[in-house]
Design a protein around this nucleic acid. Sequence first.
DNA 1: CGTCTTTGACCAGCGC
DNA 2: GCGCTGGTCAAAGACG
Length: 556
Amino acid sequence: MERGWSGLTLDSSSLDLINPNRFNSNNHRRFSNPLTMSRIDDDDDQKTKISTARNEFRFPVSLSGIRDREDDAGDNDREVPGEVDFFSDRKSIVCGDDVDDPRARVKKEEQDDQTHVNTGLNLRTTGNTRSDQSVVDDGESSEMEDKRAKNELVKLQDELKEMTMENHKLRELLTQVSNNYTSLQMHLVSLMQQQQQNKVIEAAEKPEETIVPRQFINLGPSRAAGEAEDVSNSSSEERTRSGGSSAAEKRSNEIRDGKRLGREESPETESNKVQKVNNSSPSTFDQSTEATMRKARVSVRARSEAPMISDGCQWRKYGQKMAKGNPCPRAYYRCTMATGCPVRKQVQRCAEDRSILITTYEGNHIHPLPPAAVAMASTTTAAANMLLSGSMSSHDGMMNPTNLLARAVLPCSTSMATISASAPFPTVTLDLTHAPSPPNGSNSSSSTAAATTNNNNHNSLMQRPQQHQQQQMTNLPPGMLPHVIGQALYNQSKFSGLQFSGGSPSAAAFSQPTAVADTIAALTADPNFTAVLAAVISSMINGSNHRDGEGNNKNQ
DNA sequence: CGTCTTTGACCAGCGC
DNA sequence: GCGCTGGTCAAAGACG
């Protein structure tokens, strides 16, 4: 009876909840055309449509035993409430406002019977249907049966009303959770950035302390727009565009200077960086850390025939190179949504499987993002931040928010992502190319294959010796990105030298929870965190695939 | 004509 | 120091 009701909102079909157009695919199989339903619901006077709807759309709940009486009360669907949507439309077929009043119902049914005659519709009418002449001629037994049926119908109507209310509540809850998720996600990123800045301030006040963590300061949104521009790379395009006014020219020069500095510092080794940071002033430190921050990378592997996955941002290609070990060229893109935005990405096909597109993001956007780009950008930003946070030092590997995040998602996540914290470019690889796998690595075959691919991928992408172990986590089903990050960060924690025992992290590992960690945990534990992001990522990839045949190699 | 892509050249880091 | 490689620049060409 409850089939498809209670589990409607927060179960595995949550993806469809996010996208109403896809909603009918699972729970509303018979409601193949939501648009038609809305037309039906909005147009109370058009009995033809209503009746057609009755024939076309069946109750997803089991109404065995009352099917005929459903037809009996079938014209109640003329009385459907005005507000009908994907959650309530099924129930509203029966749950008219005045259905509960038997007298009104009988009256209505008489009218409806007449209507049926007038419209010539071939509605199924059985012995329980009042329009049938047999109802009038039936004796006491028929009345009793009718009464019983009526009671049953009323009972069912009550039940359906309750379900309607419950469904409404769940729907509101879903909306609220989705909204909260979006805001919390943004808040999370800012929190983490704030935390990094706090660490920098603390470290600056105590210069004798270890300096290593400070090199991984993140860009806060406030400073990003200003300083990041100064420090970030600039292209010839940027210089050209800003070359008109003197102020713009000055700014362009600043950018250029900053870029020069960034280019000088970015390729440094870790030890050199530490040394330099240790002796540098705060401003110099910021530039250095900016350069380092920009080197944090998030690599996304996804199956797509399109030249690029559509991530909502505008990109301009500025280079292409043949990479060693891969016959496919690597394309370099920079974000052009704002002048001076430091974000870049590399796009390359996997050498082993050319249907796999590897997109590597680097840097943080310094401008507002269109809705379509928010999910990917914030995800990659968060992943990069968390990665850096987790890789800052080994001694606190299990104490940082990263690992708490990992713990939050660990129980329900499988191996999906790769952490490569090798200097100088710590990288999170999110593998969207494999089907879900059983936990605990029991899917040895696919997991192994993915691992090989991914390692090769890293070799080709990074062209750096794997100085550290690389934790292979694969098999990311589209829609599990937050889990991916969590899993990746879980791996990062292992990378840090401390390992969970059998997937069950020790309590000592979380002895110093932070507010940020709690936020992360709460976010990632929320099924909607997965669902919302999953929907976006999936739509990106799908959208990209849909454009395969359109030669979409322009900016996306 | 403006914008974007292509592509060879250049630079810096790294390993030998 | 030299060669290899990744990353970027910028001139030239393509495109709308």
